[in-house]
Design a binder for these strands. Structure first.
Length: 529
RNA sequence: GGCCCCAUCGUCUAGUCAGGCCUAGGACACCAGGUUUUCAUCCUGGCGACGGGGGUUCAAAUCCCCCUGGGGUCACCA
């Protein structure tokens, strides 16, 4: 045995029915949500990182439920035992926490329809599969993988539509049971009704309107594999039904699965949920976003230093607009205004520039303390921030962040903007352009020398951020220097950069001693050659 | 290729369902000015789209049809 439940026995080891008695682990009252309560779900497959498109799908599901007093469910679709890993599941949940998306039911918090990992619901799935076989709504197929491969090759050669030909569709049921009982390997296929008599499945997609599929185009798909494990389309329906999901909001790639799923709901004697198929998020090549054309993993955007609020806001803008005018809005406004019906139909190309712009907007608008807190890991990684420094030099760090905040868009850009503060005063690296400009100014060395002694002699109470700019301007006036002829060399001497924070901030951040040291070093450097 | 979905500025979109208020609005990007000690922020302005063709109508970005273009999907993956 390979550890999987025996597909040929009907006994469900796990009950997936709602827990009607008592309360669950979260202490909810012992009542089921009424059928009118909106219930949405996001069902990630823990076989890799959370995709940025998946994050948007989850966000829309979340917003839709939250806006209607409904519940948002997280269900782990780990029906692929080979590729599913718990660490991926953990990472996916972390991604949602980072975005600020919370869930009412899920593998970690439980809920009235637990368990929320599909691998733990296998008994219920198989029970249903056998129920359908018994009713003749599904059947056993003894075709081997090789056999099906040949079938496909033949169809391909004849340029026919690739589809299972239903070769075991009409096998006598008793005969099938005998072969199964004898241990012959087989799958269980769904019997699509009215394939040859013009049957069709029609449904009203909340986003796309009426969509129809001819049953002639829907094959008798596999519900249970040879090894006894249930497949996605089958499990998905069982669980959506058991978990009383009312609205299935998912990516457009699932549109073609919908007739299969609706047919299964009907076979099970259940009403299908409302479907809404979201347009795809496209890469710069106009195709479904892939690693080649952009960062597909949500995690990449956290690492790149985007504020999560900006990512959420940006994801909203991919396929949805608040009113067509306002671009910047928060989660609560999303929840208040979002309706799946307003989502656009066409795919959207992911625009990193616009995301970066939004990130800058959020970065500048948030409390300074928050920027500092979020930038800290990046500063630490760059070696600029050591343990305890944030507390010991709180004023320094606050000012440092404030001084460059409107000059960056991502947390990750902050270290580079502050690196000059941590360079050695005697051999500060100079930007080539900045140096050239300074050297072109014949009096620069003399000006810097004058500034050095002026600053060295400036009384402490006048060496303050609020007044330093005026002090410098007055000094310029008193010396008969033009502002530009003084500030440019001063900036080069202090920062080595062509641009950057206000010089008053730089002086305070460096402190009088280091400022004067840098000025003196610059004078020497300019006169040396 | 079969089936399905889609189609407004370079990009994200509003407008399309209930045709006139649209000489098509906003945002990003880009360009040009302004503010500023630099860079940036900020402000002002500019550039820039209804894929094509038929209909219906007094009137079409909006409704219908065809074409073209793009995408998705065709697994014992999800």
């Amino acid at each position: 045995m390979d550890g999987r439940p025996d597909p040929y026995s009907a006994g469900p080891p796990v009950s997936c029915r709602p827990n009607r008695a008592g309360t669950n682990s979260r202490g909810w009252p012992s009542q089921e949500p009424s059928m009118t309560t909106v219930r949405t779900r996001f069902a990630p497959s823990p076989t890799g990182a959370l995709h940025i498109g998946g994050a948007r799908t989850a966000l829309f599901n979340w917003a839709f439920a939250r806006g209607r007093g409904g519940r948002f469910v997280l269900r782990v679709e780990d029906t692929d035992p080979e590729r599913s890993k718990r660490e991926y599941e953990d990472a996916i949940l972390d991604g949602f926490r980072w975005l600020g998306i919370d869930w009412d039911e899920g593998p970690d918090v439980g809920g009235p329809f637990a368990p929320y990992r599909q691998s733990e619901r296998a008994g219920r799935h198989l029970e249903r599969a056998h129920e359908l076989v018994a009713k003749g709504l599904a059947y056993r197929c003894f075709a081997t993988a090789e056999e099906l491969g040949e079938l496909r090759a033949g169809q391909e050669a004849r340029k026919e539509t690739l589809r299972y030909d239903g070769r075991y569709r009409t096998l006598d049921a008793a005969e099938a049971e005998r072969r199964a009982a004898a241990g012959e390997a087989h799958t269980i296929r769904f019997r699509v009704p009215d394939q040859d008599s013009g049957g069709e499945t029609v449904f009203d997609d909340s986003i796309r309107g009426r969509v129809r599929f001819s049953h002639a185009e829907v094959e008798d798909w596999i519900m249970v594999r040879t090894d006894g494990s249930p497949t996605y389309n089958f499990v998905c329906v069982c669980d959506d039904a058991d978990m009383q999901i009312t609205h299935v909001v998912r990516g457009e790639e699932h549109l073609v699965n919908t007739p299969k799923q609706i047919l299964l709901f009907r076979a099970l004697g259940l009403e299908p949920p409302v479907y809404a198929h979201l347009p795809l998020i496209l890469g710069t090549d106009g195709k479904k976003m892939s690693k080649r054309t952009g960062d597909t993993a949500l995690e990449a955007y956290r690492v790149a230093g985007h504020p999560p609020e900006a990512v959420v806001n940006f994801l909203c803008l991919q396929g949805w607009a608040l009113d067509g005018e306002r671009e910047v809005f928060d989660r609560s406004e999303l929840v208040e205004h979002f309706d799946v019906k307003d989502v656009s139909k066409g795919g959207s190309i992911f625009d990193p520039d616009k995301l970066a712009w939004l990130s800058g907007e959020y970065l500048r608008a948030e409390p300074l303390e928050q920027t500092l807190e979020r930038a800290a890991p990046f500063l630490a990684a760059a070696g600029l921030l050591v343990d305890g420094d944030l507390e010991e030099r709180a004023d320094f760090w606050r000012l440092a962040i404030e001084s460059i905040r409107e000059r960056v868009r991502l947390y990750a850009e902050i270290p580079a903007k502050l690196a000059f503060l941590f360079a050695p005063d005697s051999v500060l690296p100079w930007d080539a352009g900045a140096e050239a400009k300074t050297r072109a100014n014949a009096g620069a060395a003399d000006v810097l020398e004058g500034l050095a002694s002026f600053l060295a002699d400036l009384p402490d109470e006048r060496f303050r951020r609020a007044t330093l700019a005026d002090e410098l301007k007055q000094w310029c006036a008193s010396q008969g220097h033009k502002l530009g002829a003084v500030f440019q060399p001063l900036r080069t001497a202090l920062t080595g950069e062509p641009g950057g924070p206000e010089l008053a901030d730089v002086l305070v951040l460096l402190g009088r001693g280091r400022s004067v040291a840098r000025l003196t070093a610059a004078v020497g450097r300019l006169r040396a050659s």
